[in-house]
Design a protein around this nucleic acid. Structure first.
Lengths: 337, 337
DNA sequence: ACGGACTGAGAAAACGCTTTCTCATAATTC
DNA sequence: GAATTATGAGAAAGCGTTTTCTCAGTCCGT
């Protein structure tokens, strides 16, 4: 007890005592309220620096009703895509004096709801990347999470801004690219079944198939990780497809590695495409043809939407969509003649 | 005003009112204090679920003097090494019900101190990755940041636990490996001049040189990024070295790419080594020989040290060192004969 | 049946700050 | 010079919890 009081962090009261004013005045000075006499203000400031006083953020938060912190929930922090979103978000938020609290749901969709709620309560807003959560649950949760911005999801009920990547369009472009190279037997190495973005890709591919009834397109079960791609090599070879659209770059890279081990040449024997254009996609062997998503920028945009939401209670609710850009590299080539 | 009161989040008072008890009792029930009658407790719990009451964490934090949050400051969130530390830390902390707040100093060392202080005040502890901060500044800052665990740094004054990677040992092993392949003209593509971990590497290389007076070892200015490595290609070629030790995997990968563009073959013409063994190091062309650091595990360990620090005021102060492990892959080979 | 030891819950203080309310004192006006 | 208005700072009321303090009401032994 005695010990503890010695170590106690210095608070507004200590400054007030030293400066010989009330703590209200100290607060006024610290917050740049000009209704305080210049002489006294200076005295307070001097006392503050002498004691190296720094306002306790928790006390401030309670009084002000804001934490200057936003939360982000991601399904997997080891995924470069979410790392990039986090980075873009964090950097942009920092410029406005906000910090970010992270919550990794480890791909466990049942955790997403709880984590989201917890994070939200600690923060002024929430950026939600919850690809596995069901639409129903998201819809139910949304109101209690406001202000919130969604990544690659949208809700009916709330007007939460949502930032979407047009995966459907991107995958169509990739497929068209393969067709232009002469491929007629394609395979899609799908992502997690319940993933929202996988659904968007499937929609895109449906449109593609409708436009190209002559092109064969097989659906192969995959996943979202490097390992999933690696393990799918046999399946891909067995499919007889000459070109495969992987769920994302990670899967594509795993597949590249798996195919290499089996002695299958890319792109001579099989062409492979990824999705996302993660930083390392251009350095694989061969460099990966992919659909580039300006993902860091998306993270940045997420902050801007969030900021708008926090500042004005009125929601602009701009559901902006990011168009992926076809990035042709070495992993795709003319069909084996 | 009227509006606002309608929207107000429900608090402990609402539950108390509905259950017909004092808010103190609600608090007791919520915190599993058993000195409350079972009947009443049940009534309170019912009221809580009916109102969907969730205690306000800020209020709790103020009362309890803890936030259940730890901060981490990293110099660059786009660096896979820090991403991995963050991930290991975040996952481990989550298991104990802690969250992590991130602060990215964007490699600006002057920001590190401020960010660290800010983050620390909002959290129960701080994990500090501040490679650019001067020893003096770190020493001065340390006391005010406690509890804190350091990554790849150490202090004299405080007994802050520090988790170190033995870069000196690792780089020596890499150099020895190159020598064993017959190389006699080596170059070190250094990291940022003021980086602490770069210093450790230099110390290791000094020892190496002392043990191998016959081996030529040039020092080349580099950096810590992919781009730095890429740009250094010309310099490396001009140096006449047959093997180059890059500061880290990122630099090595950039160099690989740069050398490839110039038509220099790796490892036939020049051998290249990295450091860290980031996830993609094994998938470069050729796969990168490197010194593997169990970096996610280090993040985990950082949490364990932090937890010990938070729980018992007494510090175990275990300055643990992680030994990198030589990972020989395709980017190194016998010297050109 | 009466005093002492328990139980259990409300009242109130504490956490560290911001902000409204209030009221001296000083500055202005007629 | 008295009345009015600025000006500026302290007192106090929050913000939403936890926790100590207090004190009714019970239960027990004698």
């Amino acid at each position: 007890m005695g010990r503890r009081s010695t170590t106690r962090r210095i608070g507004i009261a200590d400054v007030a005592l030293l400066a010989g004013v009330s703590h209200a005045t100290v607060s006024r000075v610290m917050n740049g309220n000009f209704t305080v006499d210049a002489t006294i203000a200076e005295r307070v400031r001097a006392a503050a620096v002498e004691l190296n006083y720094q306002p306790n953020p928790v006390g401030r938060s309670l009084a002000l009703g804001k934490t200057d912190t936003i939360g982000i929930v991601v399904p997997d922090l080891s995924n470069p895509t979410f790392q990039a979103i986090l980075r873009g978000l964090s950097m942009a938020a920092a410029q406005d004096g906000y910090r970010v609290l992270i919550a990794d749901s480890s791909e466990v969709s049942s955790e997403e709801a709880i984590l989201a709620g917890e994070a939200r309560r600690r923060c002024d807003g929430l950026v939600l990347c919850a690809p596995r959560m069901s639409d129903a649950e998201l819809e139910e949760l949304a109101p209690s999470l406001h202000p919130m911005v969604l990544i690659n999801r949208s809700t009916e009920s709330t007007q939460a801004p949502s930032l979407m990547v047009d995966y459907g369009q991107g995958i169509q472009e990739l497929a068209e690219h393969l067709v232009s190279l002469g491929h007629t037997r394609l395979a899609f190495l799908a992502g997690p079944a319940r993933s929202a973005s996988n659904g968007m890709r499937l929609n895109g591919l449906e449109k593609f198939s409708a436009a190209h009834p002559d092109i064969e397109l097989q659906m192969l079960e995959g996943g979202s990780s490097f390992e999933a791609g690696h393990e799918a090599a046999d399946k891909v070879i067995a499919s007889g497809a000459t070109a495969v659209l992987a769920f994302n770059d990670l899967v594509a890279m795993g597949l590249l590695s798996g195919l290499h081990e089996k002695g299958v040449r890319v792109p001579e024997d099989i062409s492979v495409t990824g999705f996302d254009d993660i930083p390392f996609a251009r350095y694989t062997t061969p460099p990966l043809t992919t659909a580039a998503v300006p993902i860091t920028e998306l993270g940045q945009q997420a902050w801007h939407s969030m900021r708008a939401l926090i500042q004005q209670a009125e929601t602009p609710a701009t559901p902006s969509t990011f168009q992926p850009q076809l990035e042709v590299r070495g992993s795709t080539g003319p069909v084996k003649g």
